[in-house]
Write a protein that binds this DNA or RNA. Sequence first.
DNA 1: CGGCAGATTGACTAACTTCAATCTTGGTGG
DNA 2: CCACCAAGATTGAAGTTAGTCAATCTGCCG
Lengths: 246, 246
Amino acid sequence: MQTIHETSVPLPSAPSRHAAHCSTCALRHYCLPQGLSSEDVVRLQKVIVNARAIKRGETLFRVGDTFDTLYAIRSGSIKTVVSTSNGNGREQVMGLHLSGDALGLEGFDNGRHACHAIALEDSSVCLIPYVHFERSCRETGAIQRRLLQLMSREMVRKTAQTLMLGTLRADERVAALLLDLSGRLTRRGYAGNEFNLRLTRDDMGSFLGITLETVSRTLSRFQAKGLINTNGKLIRILDFDGLRAI
Amino acid sequence: MQTIHETSVPLPSAPSRHAAHCSTCALRHYCLPQGLSSEDVVRLQKVIVNARAIKRGETLFRVGDTFDTLYAIRSGSIKTVVSTSNGNGREQVMGLHLSGDALGLEGFDNGRHACHAIALEDSSVCLIPYVHFERSCRETGAIQRRLLQLMSREMVRKTAQTLMLGTLRADERVAALLLDLSGRLTRRGYAGNEFNLRLTRDDMGSFLGITLETVSRTLSRFQAKGLINTNGKLIRILDFDGLRAI
DNA sequence: CGGCAGATTGACTAACTTCAATCTTGGTGG
DNA sequence: CCACCAAGATTGAAGTTAGTCAATCTGCCG
């Protein structure tokens, strides 16, 4: 009954499945179970399928892939990318997802994924077959509520992103990205003032709606002002209030 | 008892199909019931509370309001507005919602609304108390699936908006707005080539991430090129392909 | 050690904003 | 019903920001 659709998941490389039943899966203790009772968590465990590893640069799913699996990042980081329907080839980095984040929720709409998900570093994700998950939602109100909350949160996040693109200037956008990332890392227990930015300048620019040159110039200017210390992808924030004040 | 198409294709079908029993609430025949069996629709009817009228310029809900009700627009149009958390007062029109659209789904996240909803003309909305609705979701898989799909669609829409703000130039944005509106009106059975834009130039600019002057200039340029005919808020599209080609 | 993708920096340019001056329209009170 | 007023729309000119093009520079990986 526990059919795993490995074949429907479009990874070119052989997926390495963990033997352990996802004992350290981020989904179980970060992403979904918040606010669930222990019985509910047990129930949820049953529908979570083993984690699976993807290497840097590999694709977890692509636009148009059948949506039959929810993903939660167990470790690493993943970017999502979409293209203009216009067909003129322009594409944009839409999201940067860290460990504990859910992935693929946009697929509900028409049963197919609406973006590409690409690993920014060697990562591992949990897979949750959607059919099993849906049943759990129906059986357990708390799980259902949690899913709705997750989707709603994703909408709020997207709203913030739209607001950024609609109202902020280039330097404000860069500052906002650094502060957002810092906060998310802190909440995950990592250092919030010094981190390794996995995105290239090109990716950052795409995400922020500016060119890679503007990103580079802005970071240099921040450094000159003593707000940050940057050496390629390694970034250290020296003056949080200064960044917020931009 | 009329059977509503159990279609797996999630595109909103023409509302004219349901126009026959379109007597009271848009939600009942447009927004939610797509893909539901007739028994499910009956079940859904029970939780829908009477419509409520709001006048032009009035606010349906505000940021911070307790989230306990879902809304669906029965007639009219409503804009949603958010402010930068930064507190520097900048705000942006985030969405333009027409009859049949759901509203307020962002409130799941933390139990409070994350935006203002303001009527652009005299409108009426359906109210669905959330507690009742949640129960329906649990009882009926189809209703649950429909809700998830609605939220997912909202995410896809937001993604498109973000993509627009991140990649398009001013004239492309204006063209995209006109075409999007035209398509949505057509799908609702209205004329898609001539419509009354309820947004002010300021609102349009805010939504598109450009200034009202740029909006005005762009519309004038479109008119000079013979793409549209504009007289204040009344807009007639003369050359769809020309607009798409921008 | 060499090749190459990514990053930085500079000079120039295009696009959009800002400021400002009318013009138009819709609503309201006399 | 009309005149008036205020809000919205249009258009012009000047100013800024960010984009484009191009030339290095850096560091990583085989």
